[in-house]
C-alpha cells in the first residue's frame, strides 16, 4: 500500500519538477519548488510508514515548516536582492 503511495507521489513530484525546469518566469519556478516541497513532506511521512519507523514524522513536521520559510526567503531574496531588513523598516513607527 505504502509503496504504491510513494510511487504515485514520486510521479507527481516529477510533474512539479518539469514545471520548475520549464517555467518561464522565476515565480513559476518558486511555485513549483514550493509544491515539490509539500510533496516531499508527504513522501517522508509515507517512507516512515513503509520502513516502520514513525520517527520520520518529526522530520516531515520540520520539513513542512522549513519549506514555508524557505519559500519566503527565496522570494524575498529574488525580490530585494538580500535577506536583511524589510525595506520599509525606517517608516515603521516605534512602539
Amino acid at each position: 500500500m505504502f509503496s504504491v503511495a510513494a510511487l504515485g507521489i514520486l510521479v507527481s513530484m516529477a510533474l512539479a519538477m518539469a514545471r520548475a525546469l520549464v517555467g518561464p518566469s522565476v515565480y513559476d519556478r518558486i511555485l513549483a519548488v514550493n509544491a515539490f516541497g509539500t510533496k516531499t513532506v508527504l513522501i517522508i511521512a509515507v517512507l516512515g510508514f513503509m520502513t516502520g519507523r514513525p520517527d520520520f514524522l518529526d522530520i516531515a513536521l520540520v520539513y513542512a515548516l522549513i519549506n514555508f520559510i524557505g519559500t519566503i526567503a527565496v522570494l524575498k531574496f529574488v525580490r530585494y536582492g538580500d535577506l536583511g531588513w524589510p525595506r520599509r523598516l525606517e517608516d515603521r513607527e516605534k512602539p
Binding site: 514550493n34 513542512a64 514555508f68 519559500t71 525580490r79
Partner: peptide, 23 residues
C-alpha cells in the same frame, strides 16, 4: 503528529501562495 503536519501545511500554504502572488 500527522494532524499537526496537516495543520501546519494548511496554515502555511495560503500564506506562501499569497506572498508569491503579491510579489
Amino acid at each position: 503528529k500527522l494532524i499537526l503536519i496537516l495543520v501546519f501545511l494548511w496554515f502555511t500554504s495560503p500564506t506562501a501562495t499569497h506572498a508569491l502572488a503579491r510579489a
